[in-house]
């Protein structure tokens, strides 16, 4: 097991009368790509700012290598940040921006020049030393910002929605590159985003947050396949969420039918919620499935069709490559392993 680098213990934060963090507990490991994921206002950026040292927690602890640092100012932390809008210094050129931290440390000029050019090479901006940062494209500015942070050789790099301002194609490209850079420098990245696809494709670990609380921590596949509650299921990917009860281990009831499943460990007759991912559902002939309904709407999504089927109890969303015309009577088929049973959430 890797070493714990940062531990957040019972962090809370209040701005005026508003509580934005309600007891965050989180361990962050060395060499890990960890993503804080959640809708805006969920507290993910605040958590990041507390780790960086820009905000102080109202209560709780931040441990770095086991040492409490919540009162240590940002300039004394071995942590660097890539900001949302890059926050480059517009009156300095590319090289001087990157060298900013090194100059403050009064490092030797030739050493600085060497480090700067190595960084530029890593982020793919060789020969850009004397360029004016304000004339660079968004993607290039982002690379400068990353180089400016990494040149200080921090133990942790914090990234606050760094790709938010880029267009879709460069975004994809930068995602791959970021992951590559992380592997190359071998340090911990803590990444903040509200984009679930970005989170799933880059991270070693994803922390889903909502309303100042952590909803679930896990690997991308765990988060997707085994959402712990309705919020996570709803926020990550698309879901059909159905209320039902657990009759006994491996047997669940919803919409008036009973189904075999792979879940166990719930009390008998416990009210639960079931997640059925749209891509796990198949359209079949009505007599081949328990649940039947009528096709209400079909949308072409590129790789697949999104088909809305109305049954007696609800509407289901199905993602399938098979076409079914509107008005047709169909059955919905799925296997035991496609059913994911969750504890029912309280007020949400």
């Amino acid at each position: 097991m890797k070493n714990k680098l940062i531990e957040l213990k019972d962090l809370t934060k209040n701005f005026d009368d508003q509580q934005v963090l309600r007891g965050i507990n989180l361990d962050i490991y060395e060499n890990e790509f960890l993503t804080l994921l959640g809708p805006s206002g969920c507290g993910k950026t605040t958590t990041l700012r507390i780790i960086a040292g820009f905000d102080e927690p109202s209560s709780g602890q931040v441990l770095f290598n086991g040492i409490e640092i919540s009162k240590v100012p940002p300039y004394k932390r071995e942590i660097n940040t890539v900001f949302q809008k890059y926050a480059l210094f517009p009156y300095l050129n590319v090289a001087d921006n990157i060298a900013f931290g090194l100059n403050l440390k009064k490092m030797d000029k030739s050493v600085i020049a060497q480090k700067v050019s190595r960084m530029l090479k890593m982020v793919g901006l060789e020969g850009f030393e004397k360029r004016d940062v304000t004339l660079l494209s968004g993607g290039q500015q982002q690379r400068v910002a990353i180089a400016r942070a990494l040149v200080n050789e921090p133990k942790v790099l914090l990234l606050d929605e760094p790709l938010g301002a880029l267009d879709a194609k460069i975004r994809k490209q930068m995602q791959t590159e970021l992951k590559k850079i992380q592997r190359e420098v071998g340090i911990t990245f803590i990444y903040v985003t509200h984009d679930q696809e970005e989170a799933l494709s880059m991270s070693d670990a994803v922390v889903v947050m909502n309303n100042g609380e952590i909803q679930q921590i896990g690997s991308p596949t765990d988060i997707y396949n085994e959402p712990e509650n309705r919020f996570v299921a709803d926020f990550i990917g698309e879901s059909n969420i159905i209320e039902g009860h657990m009759i006994k281990d491996f047997l669940v009831e919803f919409d008036g039918y009973t189904f075999e499943c792979v879940d166990k460990g719930f009390p008998e007759n416990e009210e639960i919620e079931v997640v059925l991912r749209p891509e796990d559902l198949d359209i079949v002939e009505p007599d081949k499935a328990q649940i039947t309904g009528v096709v209400k709407n079909v949308t072409f999504k590129g790789v697949h069709y999104e088909i809305i089927v109305e049954t007696e109890s609800r509407t289901y969303m199905v993602h399938t490559t098979d076409y079914a015309e509107v008005g047709r009577k169909v059955g919905l088929s799925f296997g035991p392993e496609d059913i994911h049973v969750m504890w029912k959430m309280g007020a949400y």
Binding site: F54, P74, I79, N80, F83, A87, L104, R148
Partner: peptide
């Protein structure tokens, strides 16, 4: 100014005065 500029400077090791 981008409110993060001062933060960025401190993040890179500048004291508040710097």
């Amino acid at each position: 100014l981008d409110p993060n500029l001062a933060n960025a400077a401190m993040d890179l090791g500048a004291t508040p005065y710097q």
